[in-house]
């Protein structure tokens, strides 16, 4: 148990360093803006006074490290500044929109994991049959199809032609179906490949043969013994996948006019609203890092034999 605590301690320290680095990049990026960053953020119509005010509030008139220090100090107090567009607090705008993004990400992950695992099991247990070929075809399509095109195709089919589901917005529960399926499709490909490969591996092991010899049914052996052990690497893929999914969420939210932080980010980029861009990018990176730590934790819970720590 001490080893585990030590490992998680290292892991947490590394995560904090990563996030501090991300925050630094986020602060420094603004300085890469061509010309006078304060002028760019304020807009061409703004008066000199407004430009100076923005320069001062963002700390652009100070050395980069001081600006970074000020940013971190505010961050500790839960303050990421005000939107250059609406003057609302960046934190409160992100918190209003974040639940939508999380809802979409979790629904997408759930669909990706459920469909992917089922397909992987079907392919592994019916190896080299048409089921196996079909699932591997679906898998490669899943990782190759751009989410924004898949989303548009689904809208054309289910919203425009069949008129079964809404094309955009987040008013009803049915609005969640198309976007979460769109975003989950990529994971379906990866998860089913991983499940198939691991299950085939596990099915060749001694204890599975023993279970069969005891007269247990195929279904029982697969679901009680094999899948459980094949699940661990799959879990990692699902966890690591979450990051890609968040990136894809930016595009998916744009396709379906979903009111999450991804769409807010795109709107903010068009409006050159840098405090908001900084806040959202930092939020995304934090979610990514936290999910990775949680994945590591679950890893050891699901399989006590896994000792990531020395």
């Amino acid at each position: 148990m001490r080893g585990f605590a030590l490992y998680m301690g290292h892991r947490l320290v590394a995560s904090v360093i990563t996030l501090l680095g991300v925050a630094f990049i986020v602060v420094a990026l603004v300085r890469l803006l061509p010309g006078d960053p304060a002028r760019v953020i304020a807009g061409l119509q703004a008066g000199q006074e407004e430009v100076d005010r923005i320069r001062a509030t963002l700390g652009l008139d100070r050395p980069l490290l001081v600006q970074y220090g000020l940013f971190l100090e505010d961050l500790v107090h839960g303050d990421m500044g005000e939107s250059a567009r609406t003057n609302n607090s960046v934190v409160s705008e992100i918190l209003t929109r974040l639940p939508f993004t999380l809802e979409l990400a979790f629904a997408g992950t759930a669909i990706g994991a459920a469909v992917g695992i089922l397909m992987g099991v079907a392919a592994a247990t019916r190896r080299a049959t048409w089921v196996d070929h079909l699932t591997s075809t679906v898998a490669v399509i899943g990782v190759s199809i751009p989410v924004y095109w898949l989303g548009i195709l689904l809208i054309i089919l289910f919203a425009v032609n069949l008129q079964w589901l809404p094309a955009a917005g987040a008013e009803h529960l049915s609005s969640l179906i198309l976007p979460s399926f769109t975003i989950g499709m990529f994971s379906v490909g990866l998860v089913s490949r991983m499940t198939r490969a691991n299950l085939l591996d596990v099915l060749g092991q001694d204890y599975v043969r023993t279970a069969h010899a005891k007269g247990l049914t195929d279904r029982f052996v697969i679901y009680k013994h094999a899948l459980r052990n094949a699940f661990i690497p799959v879990l990692t893929v699902i966890g690591l996948q979450f990051g890609t999914l968040l990136g894809g969420a930016v595009l998916t939210e744009s396709v379906f006019a979903w009111p999450g932080i991804g769409r807010l980010l795109v709107d903010s980029i068009f409006a050159r609203d840098f405090p908001m861009i900084q806040g959202i990018v930092l939020t995304y990176a934090t979610m990514f890092v936290v999910v990775n730590v949680i994945t590591d934790l679950l890893y050891t819970v699901v399989d006590p034999r896994v000792r990531l720590y020395g």
């Binding site: 590394a14 990563t18 680095g21 603004v30 595009l251 861009i277 995304y284 990176a285």
Partner: peptide
């Protein structure tokens, strides 16, 4: 590796998006 970690935690698409936001 810390640099790689930072870049990875942006995720591929968001890193590209953030760079375009700044570079134009």
């Amino acid at each position: 590796q810390r640099i790689a970690d930072m870049m990875l935690s942006f995720t591929t698409f968001l890193l590209a998006l953030a760079l375009v936001a700044v570079l134009g």
